[in-house]
């Protein structure tokens, strides 16, 4: 059976839920897909904070639609994880208990309206690099969820850039706000690609299993190359004195990430780790009665004869 599994991977045949798979492959997927799902759900929080403070009705409607998409993306991903035999309740419990991880980026605060644009452009931009790669991941339900997500996600990045573009053409104050947001979100966005390849514990096996198709450093480089060009259109700069085009490599060189900060936030000591989890726990606890009531109502209706309903 292991040989069949290897042959499928070799022949680019997707693995489906009831196919035999190594236990470690299953566990890796559950970990990765659920972390991804948690990231979508927690990712609603920093942006959600600005829904009531959006500068215009148009921006408010856009932001609402984006946050709603993120809830949807979380659901696609939880459903994909559930096909591996783990229950939704278990996954959510692990998040709320602080046992499961989510993307560290959402542990940074959104201090100004410009942050919403910067998140769309940089954070969603970085996420898209990763997600486009995952459309070709070896596990069928995960790949299908990613295709759906990628289709919806491109509006997220475009609206972010457009929102910054408006600020970049605005008053001196708006331009300062725009640059400040870029300054604060740039490095955390680069951290989203994870540790350097030489330090990444899961990467090797994930590449062999074709869960990942590109390494952390490859994706990060692509992202830098893309953003370094786009920032020129905004007339803004990236906060990295070492950023420059390297003719020989055909890529931008860039400075060193603050890995101490990276690990600190991963381990739970970022600016908003506690606040984010606390908000999720509160939502879960305070929503419990709704879940219970809906279930009680459904059971009562099911028990009643059809004509009485």
């Amino acid at each position: 059976m292991e040989k069949q599994f290897e042959e499928k991977l070799e022949g680019e045949v997707r693995i489906e839920p009831r196919d035999w798979m190594p236990e470690a492959y299953r566990r890796t997927l559950v970990r990765q897909i659920s972390q991804h799902a948690h990231s979508e759900i927690v990712g609603m929080l920093p942006e959600g904070a600005w829904i009531t403070r959006a500068p215009t009705l148009k921006r408010k409607a856009i932001l609402l639609a984006k946050v709603q998409d993120e809830a949807g993306h979380g659901l696609y991903l939880y459903a994909a994880a559930e096909t591996l035999g783990v229950s939704r309740a278990t996954l959510v419990a692990d998040l709320l208990a602080g046992k499961a991880k989510y993307s560290s980026i959402f542990n940074y605060p959104t201090l100004s309206w410009a942050d919403i644009g910067a998140i769309g452009w940089l954070v969603d931009g970085a996420a898209i690099m990763n997600q486009v790669m995952l459309c070709r991941t070896s596990y069928g339900p995960y790949a299908r969820a990613m295709v759906r997500i990628c289709k919806e996600e491109s509006f997220h990045q475009r609206q972010g850039f457009e929102s910054l573009l408006v600020l970049s053409r605005g008053s001196a104050e708006q331009r300062t706000m725009c640059q400040d947001a870029i300054n604060r979100w740039w490095w955390p966005s680069l951290m989203m690609f994870g540790p350097r390849d030489s330090e990444s514990t899961h990467s090797d096996q994930s590449m062999k299993w074709k869960i990942k198709r590109m390494s952390n450093d490859e994706l990060r480089q692509r992202f830098v190359d893309m953003i370094a060009e786009q920032v020129k259109v905004l007339g803004m700069s990236l906060p990295d004195p070492d950023l420059r085009w390297n003719e020989e490599r055909g890529h931008y060189d860039f400075g060193e990430i603050d890995w101490d900060e990276f690990w600190k936030v991963v381990k739970g000591d970022g600016p908003c780790n506690r606040e984010r989890l606390e908000t999720r726990r509160e939502a879960h606890t305070e929503g419990a009665w709704v879940r219970e009531a809906a279930l009680a109502h459904a059971r009562k209706k099911a028990a009643r004869p059809a004509d009485a309903a």
């Binding site: 489906e16 839920p17 035999g85 783990v86």
Partner: peptide, 17 residues
């Protein structure tokens, strides 16, 4: 990270049971 893996593989297709 320990996950409680249920052998009831439902979701995309229902459990073998």
């Amino acid at each position: 990270m320990a996950f409680q893996i249920r052998r009831l593989l439902y979701g995309d297709i229902p459990g073998g049971e």
